[in-house]
Design a protein around this nucleic acid. Structure first.
Lengths: 209, 209
DNA sequence: TAGATTGTTAATCGATTAACAATC
DNA sequence: TAGATTGTTAATCGATTAACAATC
């Protein structure tokens, strides 16, 4: 790879993407970093710096073409190819995530549901039947699976993740309250709800006010 | 307030809390910043700096008492008092969050469910009946409500949040794909699933590998 | 006591902001 | 052309890491 782009920059890109999408829907064709900075409550300088990590998408004296920039950021974020996803752990949260993926961006496609509980086998969620985790190996070695959602209890998450890594899964969306160790080349994105809620609690007591 | 503590530090506290909780369960009584740093894959220096923002919890030559430190961080995070929560928007995600809160830490108590759809009124989730958002005013002005979960479609989130702010709600756990503007003294913690998934997508294509 | 480890200051590193020449 | 706005360099600010005296 060339120059390393910092996590701080990367984590801001989806937010740019969202705002540009909304501008696009409003029929706005161009926008300057100054205007966008007002909208998003960040500095214009930061916007220009962030974007220039990936290339010069703007035009001197004009600003940025909304549609073009939206498209470019989508490309940067990898939304131009389809990621096939399985959900492992179909409790309340797993079900919600499954629905979420189906209703969401077409860059993400739900192709399988698995649970550790044999009793759930055969139940369907959004028309997709739940399989037992025994069937993971067959499924993952015979089909392209890009991302596995880990939405099972934390006790099981590390061993299931290790198994999935051995089948070649390259990305985990981890909702279990545990850190998943992965070899390089395998990505983990954590959604730790409990930590998020504790941060809110902090802001409401010691912190913010 | 005294000295401002940075967001970076605060966001690490829940993770310390989690690790200390696990150590506590394993019956480990003391730990040094060095040992903890190995466990958590961070530097010992950072751990000591982070903790010393809140006070000297350790003992020279000894390290930290696990139980004491766990307790102190819990106190810092505001987990010693109960936060009463309502969920507004009882779709798949709202239901999952409701279950999550009920099953989770006793510092968070689910006391009401609301939906914008009148058809859902009377349905129960975990034994709690769903009310219509018309009833928010009565409910929020007659009871203590600390936190509102925003799990409705993004179109409705800003107006509902504004209404809740007028009733005195001081914290929002926002799952809607929109930024919520709040006056000072009102906290917002965002869980933007779409942005999280895009970050994973990025890591798997352009980024990490 | 000797060894271990904190709390804290100083040094380094990285990220954000400001400024401005280039140019559409 | 004159005004606007980028891309990019330099300056500032903040966060992380290293180092070590204090001390249990």
């Amino acid at each position: 790879m060339e120059k390393e782009i910092s996590q701080a920059v990367i984590r801001r890109m989806p937010r740019y993407y969202r705002y540009l999408g909304e501008l696009l829907e409003s029929g706005i064709e161009r926008i300057s970093s100054r205007e966008l900075s007002v909208l998003m409550h960040v500095t214009a300088s930061q916007i220009r710096q962030d974007l220039n990590n990936f290339g010069g998408f703007g035009q001197t004296g004009y600003g940025y073409n909304v549609s073009f920039l939206h498209d470019e950021i989508g490309r940067i974020l990898g939304l131009k190819n389809v990621n096939d996803i399985i959900v492992v752990g179909v409790g309340n949260l797993g079900r919600a995530i499954a629905n979420y993926i189906i209703a969401g961006d077409e860059a993400f496609s739900l192709i399988g549901l698995f649970d550790l509980d044999k009793q759930k086998k055969g139940e369907t969620v959004c028309g997709i039947p739940i399989m037992h985790t025994d069937e993971l190996k067959d499924f993952c070695t015979s089909r392209k699976v890009d991302i596995a959602v880990l939405s099972m209890p934390k006790e099981n998450a590390p061993s299931v993740a290790a198994e999935l890594i051995s089948y070649g899964i390259k990305g985990f969306w981890n909702f279990a309250h545990v850190d998943i160790d992965t070899p390089s080349g395998v990505a983990v994105e954590n959604v730790h709800l409990s930590e998020s809620l504790m941060n809110l609690s902090y802001e409401m007591t010691g912190g913010g006010v």
